[in-house]
Design a protein around this nucleic acid. Structure first.
Length: 559
RNA sequence: CGCGGGGUAGAGCAGUGGUAGCUCGUUAGGCUCAUAACCUAAAGGUCGUAAGUUCGAAUCUUACCCCCGCAACCA
């Protein structure tokens, strides 16, 4: 039994959760969590809202509210979205808790003792008109690396370089447009320069574990040379700095939010925290979007390595997804190219939304959401193929038992699964398992064992279920049970396929799994692992409802 | 030399060295248990271009061409 901590990137609370965050972070992490729980691993799945982002403060200022009001508002909405998508978090918390603050202070103080963070006096951009220092996103200017004119103080959107506000050429205050002056101030810095060798060693060890884009971009950041990076800033919204002389400063949000990966398990209990972060046999998986790669592959391990603590774990894998587009274009509120994540669920239900977003998950390149494609995929794969397969089997069973009094539930008592059907089902389990983590169960091994590199893909894993369902439709057609006086074995085999598909669906579409179990009359049945299981008691259903109703997009595009 | 992603059947995509595949669409046929569903078959591609490595290239190398995103909102 493995101990696995699973986390998603913590969303900013300056708006509702982005649909791309659902398909790129929440869903893959949720599938991974459900899968690992099912195969018996000891899983904790956590995340939370990043309450302190500068964008939140900017938005609050604009709306005449306090930052924490805005943050709380969107934190509630985030929790609602997570509930609607049935994301199986053990904890979804926020960075506004005392627990989080105390952990951040603890890490801060430890880093100060080890010299992982150091104090430096630097010149900072200071706006005389506003009478304050201007941190990261309050300053814009020309990127010194690539010459891009709209670079922000913390990161250049064009070349992706991590920046400091004073690096910018021709900086301007974002609020008032004045050219800021430079003024001396003290700040604490994470000494990435000193940590560089240890970081390189860590990154090298991930060459065959991280996705290639994660590994390559991280390597290029490190090879460009790392410099100490400020972890405090002049601002009044955020976690205070536990040092004298820092009363007008807070801990920089990117450092503090990353430590949520430690504080969230701690909120579940000290022993949970110790189990996942201080037990070397534990594994830690973090699911992020591609915009967040350097923070998770350089700065987070930098913070942990800076503790000089051999006992603390480093993340096992950082799984980064690409971006989701809408109608072949970026999501954009102002250009009205936008769908709210909640809308799809409220219109079509949780599992239809989940199914489509899993099918188009942007795992290796950007993917595209369109309503036409939504209709085609849902109607084609989910309904015509899988939904109809379940429906035709159960309706057939019901009707034949009415026509033929010899067919009752006890008719099936002495049957067992056809060997070729069992093999077919087990191949699907095996393939799904290969796509999820490459560690299939012992009795699912194939003969032709090849040593090719594994490709993690939640989308391809999900599609395996539809391949099996299509095979089931083929089997049903081939056997022609409607021409058979005693088609008991065929029905029995079909029921086994449906039952096992429900088990597979439990990690992708949990509600649908429940509904299939209910139709099969086995609600209370427990699932034993991720491999073929035989449903011995065949139940003849009375009321058969279709799993999904067909959707017609033309009536529904009103957004 | 800005950065990144991509060019494989009408559309959307899989496929990292060995007979070009999937879904949808099209055409023809079958079936009739089922949500106008399902099954079978066919048509349709010189895998962006050129050169190279190789017994063999969609896949590796080099050069080139084309498309998409990159003010702000925005994972």
């Amino acid at each position: 039994m493995k101990k696995i901590l699973i986390a998603t990137a913590w969303p900013y609370v300056n708006g509702k959760i982005h649909l791309g965050h659902v398909t790129g972070c929440l869903l893959p992490a949720d599938i991974f969590a459900r899968y690992n729980r099912l195969i018996g691993n000891d899983v904790k799945f956590v995340s939370g809202s990043d309450m302190h982002g500068t964008p939140t403060a900017v938005l609050a200022q604009k709306e005449g509210k306090t930052p924490i009001e805005v943050a709380n508002h969107f934190h509630k909405l985030a929790q609602e979205t997570i509930r609607m998508y049935n994301i199986s978090f053990d904890l979804y918390t926020s960075t506004a808790t005392d627990n989080h603050k105390e952990l951040v202070w603890e890490i801060f103080n430890r880093l100060k003792e080890t010299g992982g963070i150091i104090e430096k006096e630097t010149e900072q951009t200071y706006c005389e008109k506003e009478e304050k220092f201007l941190p990261d996103r309050y300053v814009e200017g020309v990127c010194p690396k690539c010459g891009f004119t709209g670079a922000r103080g913390d990161q250049c959107d064009s070349c992706g370089s991590l920046l400091d506000p004073t690096d910018l050429i021709n900086p301007k205050c974002k609020t008032c447009g004045e050219t800021p002056k430079r003024k001396l101030t003290k700040h604490m810095f994470l000494d990435l320069e000193k940590l560089s060798p240890a970081l390189s060693k860590y990154v090298d060890s991930k060459k065959n574990i991280w996705k290639t884009n994660v590994f390559n971009s991280t390597e290029s950041w490190i090879s460009q040379g790392l410099i100490p990076r400020a972890i405090t800033r002049d601002m009044d919204y955020g976690i205070p700095v536990p040092l004298e002389g820092y009363e007008k400063k807070v801990i920089y949000v990117w450092m503090e939010a990353l430590l949520g990966y430690l504080s969230a398990p701690k909120e579940l209990g000290e022993e949970v925290y110790k189990k996942y972060w201080y037990d070397k046999t534990s594994e830690i998986y973090i699911f992020i979007g591609k915009d967040n790669i350097p923070f998770h592959t350089v700065i987070l391990p930098g913070l942990l390595l800076g503790l000089n603590d051999d006992k603390i774990n480093l993340p096992t894998n950082i799984v980064s997804n690409e971006f989701l587009n809408l109608n072949n274009d970026k999501f954009s509120k102002s250009r009205n190219n936008f769908i709210e994540a909640d809308y799809i669920v409220s219109k079509y239900g949780t599992d239809i939304a989940r199914a489509y977003l899993i099918l188009i998950m942007p795992e290796y390149s950007d993917s595209n959401f369109t309503w036409e494609n939504f209709e085609e995929n849902i109607n084609g794969s989910l309904i015509d193929n899988l939904g109809n397969m379940v429906n035709r089997t159960l309706v057939f069973l019901k009707n034949i038992s009415k026509k033929n009094p010899n067919i009752t539930e006890s008719t099936f008592n002495n049957l067992s699964i056809s060997k070729d059907i069992e093999k077919m089902i087990n191949e699907t389990y095996f393939n799904i398992s290969e796509y999820l983590d490459g560690s299939a169960g012992n009795n699912l091994k194939k003969d032709d064992d090849d040593s090719k590199t594994k490709k993690i893909s939640f989308s391809l894993a999900f599609k395996e279920i539809f391949i099996l369902s299509k095979e089931a439709n083929k089997y049903f057609d081939t056997k022609k049970p409607w021409k058979d006086d005693a088609p008991n074995q065929t029905i029995y085999d079909m029921i086994q396929i449906i039952f096992n598909i429900a088990i597979m669906l439990s990690i992708f579409l949990p509600e649908t799994k429940d509904r299939i179990f209910s139709l099969l009359g086995c609600e209370s049945k427990t699932i034993n692992g991720f491999e073929f299981q035989e449903l011995k008691e065949i139940h003849i259903p009375d009321n058969i409802e279709v799993l999904f109703k067909k959707i017609d997009i033309d009536e529904n595009i009103d957004i």
